[in-house]
């Protein structure tokens, strides 16, 4: 039975069919890749570049990065501390969700972009302590509105850096290339 299928596939019509099927599969895959690389829709088109241009430090809004695993989102109160003094906030369409949040007490629902899978235990603190800057991983925020990952954050990318930084230091190498450093 299976032999008949393969015989049919070897004749010209079969080859065309295989070609079409392959093309369909390929374009589906290409679309799949394109689709999953799109940054997600955010409730507010948050202009990072504007805030950075005002001279606000990353750690002002994301202070957790210095202390532990999660850099954290700024609280509504922190946004409001500045924005309530800015007249445009009340009228801006862009900022309507923030105003709404302050009025109703319902938090803004952000969508995190720089994510690692559940089985990776990532900690910001040692990276900052090792002298890395935010833009080393997250890209140049002076040019971004809503955040986009500058590269695919996968294990190869992590390990490349770990290897570079630990080269020549056997103790550090053991630590930084150990599976148990990130996976448990």
């Amino acid at each position: 039975m299976i032999k008949r299928i393969f015989d049919w596939l070897r004749q010209p019509l079969g080859l065309v069919a295989v070609g079409i099927a392959f093309l369909a599969l390929f374009s589906l895959a290409a679309y799949g890749i394109y689709y999953t690389q799109q940054p997600p829709a955010q409730p507010i088109q948050f202009p990072h570049k504007t805030h950075v241009a005002f001279g606000i430090q990353c750690l002002y809004c994301h202070p957790g990065a210095e202390r532990g695993p999660s850099p954290g989102l700024p609280s509504t109160a922190k946004c409001w501390a500045c924005h309530q003094q800015i007249a445009k906030t009340q009228t801006s369409l862009l900022l309507a969700p923030l105003v709404e949040s302050v009025r109703t007490g319902v938090p803004v629902q952000w969508v995190p972009v720089a994510q690692v899978p559940d089985f990776v235990q990532y900690n910001h603190r040692p990276h900052i302590a090792a002298g890395l800057n935010c833009e080393d991983c997250h890209g140049d925020l002076t040019k971004m509105t809503i955040y986009e990952n500058p590269q695919v954050m996968n294990m190869g990318w992590c390990l490349n850096c770990h290897k570079e930084k630990s080269a020549g230091n056997p103790e550090l190498e053991t630590k930084l290339l150990d599976c148990g450093t990130c996976h448990y």
Partner: peptide
Amino acid sequence: LTGCGPASKYVTRQQYLEMPEYNYNG
């Protein structure tokens, strides 16, 4: 089909309205 980049499972995260002063994120 499935092995491309970050899985398309974006979750949402809520910010604190007012973070207690003794709390740190994470």
